[in-house]
Amino acid sequence: MKYALLMYSVEKSWAEADEATREKVYAAHGRFSELLASRDAERGGEELALSNTATTVRVQGGEHLMTDGPYAETAEQLGGFYLVEARDLDEALEFARHLATVEDIIEVRPVVEHPAG
């Protein structure tokens, strides 16, 4: 089964992190990628730019309404995601536990897989 591991963090601390801290976090993600690779589990993933660079678009009264900023203004923001292939939820949660040592909150969401054709 495919799962998305959505990573939420307190953005402020990441924005204010010094170079050494950032290097440590990236190194941890490197190790996490290696773990996924060793299980042939990595199916993609990205780091997202800070939420103050986001633009939110919605339709209201037939018009496209654009607002500056993320959909929800919370302290924790979606900062990136991995797509993983796991045997079941237990394996996906095992990956999430590894990731939770680096990022604040990991939300594990099953990916809906539509039959081909």
């Binding site: 079941d88 939820l89 237990d90 996906a92």
Partner: peptide
């Protein structure tokens, strides 16, 4: 069903 919760004895670590 949707989240893939397994019906088996858990892994030793879990």
């Amino acid at each position: 069903r949707t989240a893939g919760i397994p019906v088996r004895f858990p892994a030793p670590d879990d």
